[in-house]
């Protein structure tokens, strides 16, 4: 899905715990998600900490979008 969108000219940042799969299929901008069951969250954290984690991951995705290079962050 990522590569088809990028072929259409839309930059995509993919947040996934399975970065290796994303790299294999050719995703260009990859951000390591927290886990399979909550890629942008963490139930072991306090609500404010979890929110901060999510904000950090989204910021990484935005940074990757702004970058001109292939990235895994």
């Amino acid at each position: 899905m990522t590569t088809e969108m990028e072929k259409a000219g839309i930059p995509v940042a993919q947040v996934t715990p399975m970065t290796l799969v994303a790299e294999t299929v050719g995703s260009n901008r990859i951000i390591r998600g927290r886990s399979i069951v909550h890629p942008l969250g963490d139930v072991d954290l306090a609500p404010e900490e979890e929110h901060e984690l999510r904000r950090m991951l989204v910021q990484r995705a935005l940074d990757a979008l702004a970058s001109e290079d292939r990235t895994t962050a």
């Binding site: 899905m1 990522t2 088809e4 969108m5 072929k7 259409a8 994303a22 399979i36 069951v37």
Partner: peptide
């Protein structure tokens, strides 16, 4: 199938004037 879904999504996003996507995968 995933590729087709990606193409269909891309078309809808382009028509809506979307500049970039954050795609979240489990």
């Amino acid at each position: 199938n995933s590729r087709r879904i990606g193409r269909e999504m891309a078309q809808r996003l382009k028509e809506a004037g979307v500049d970039a996507v954050i795609l979240t995968s489990t």
